[in-house]
Amino acid sequence: MPLHDESGRVALLGGGFSTDTDGVLDDWVLGLARRPRPKVCFVPTASGDAEGYAERFLGAFAGRECEPSVLRLFRREADDASLRAFLLEQDVVYVGGGNTANLLAVWRVHGVDRLLVEAYERGTLLCGISAGANCWARGSHTDSFGPLAFLPDGLGLLPGSVCPHYDSEPGRRPSYRRAVASGALPAGWALDDGAGALFTDGVVTRTVAREVGAHLYRVEPDGRGGVTETVVLP
């Protein structure tokens, strides 16, 4: 049973403390939390728990109205019961960038995938950038294997697929469009750097941008071997 009326929420971020200096998207995330001083847990699994990444998060969020923490799985100390209790008490789980395929594999070994689904159903806001955006969907566009490729894997909390860095990394746009057109990935959402999108129960409910021209796009096969690309205006 959901604990409040804002269960089932995922936010895709095209930026944040790791890429931006103004903190606009991070402030937006905190404003979506279910309480004024939320507990915010950063999960840097996709980067191999890079210590510098965790320190940047703690530095960026220490001065905000929140209680920041970091979940490290490569040096895990909590037992299963403690890990579950810790994740379920978070108001926001913020997943960092890195390798999407490795992220999913490590989460499954530790049972974090199941715990995040439980947290989602209980009202925790799940969010992230790059790999931390990819992981919530059924599939994603990723460089986890070196060259840009499709990954038909994810937690499935968002129907369809996700492609980050749509406007900023060479080859992203045409490669993702080909994957959707061919059916290698289901129809989905492409996010420019600088944009953010909130999904409630799998449906986009808010979009924002920290700069002019940053958008969320709906990308779907057109039935003729190509795709249609629709801008969802912030």
Rank of each mutant, 00 (worst) to 15 (best):
R108Y: 01
V24P: 00
L30F: 09
F42A: 06
G183Q: 05
G188A: 02
Y217D: 00
F150V: 07
G196T: 04
G196E: 04
M1A: 15
G171W: 13
E229F: 12
V40R: 10
L83F: 03
V212L: 12
G171C: 09
S69P: 02
L103S: 01
W107I: 02
T142C: 04
G194M: 01
L126V: 02
G132E: 05
V92L: 07
R35D: 11
A137W: 01
G15W: 01
R35V: 09
T21P: 02
G111P: 07
S69C: 13
E89K: 11
D222M: 00
D192F: 06
G123N: 08
P221E: 02
Y176G: 04
D201Y: 12
L115D: 04
R34L: 06
Q90W: 12
L216S: 12
L104I: 11
G31M: 04
G132Y: 05
L155H: 05
A190F: 00
R210W: 02
A60M: 07
L12M: 09
V106H: 15
A184W: 07
A184N: 03
L73M: 14
S47H: 13
S144K: 07
S7A: 15
W189F: 11
A133C: 11
L83C: 10
G183K: 09
R76S: 11
A209C: 11
L151G: 07
S182C: 06
R218G: 08
L151Y: 07
Q90E: 14
A81K: 13
G226A: 03
T21K: 05
L126I: 09
F74P: 00
P68L: 07
L151M: 07
E211P: 00
E89N: 10
F57T: 10
G146L: 04
T207E: 08
S130P: 05
V219Y: 01
T205A: 14
R172A: 11
S140K: 01
I129G: 12
L30R: 11
G188R: 02
V43K: 05
E89S: 15
R210M: 10
A46L: 08
G14C: 02
P159C: 01
S7H: 15
P170D: 05
D27N: 14
G123C: 09
D27G: 14
G97S: 10
G128S: 04
P68F: 13
Y217C: 01
H4V: 00
L87P: 03
G154H: 03
F42R: 03
L191R: 14
T45H: 10
E118F: 08
P164G: 02
V109E: 13
G194D: 08
A149Y: 07
H215Q: 02
H215R: 14
P159H: 08
D26A: 11
R210N: 07
R206G: 00
V180H: 06
S130M: 03
W189D: 06
P234G: 13
H141A: 08
E229G: 03
V212D: 12
V203Y: 10
H165Y: 13
Y94K: 01
L87W: 11
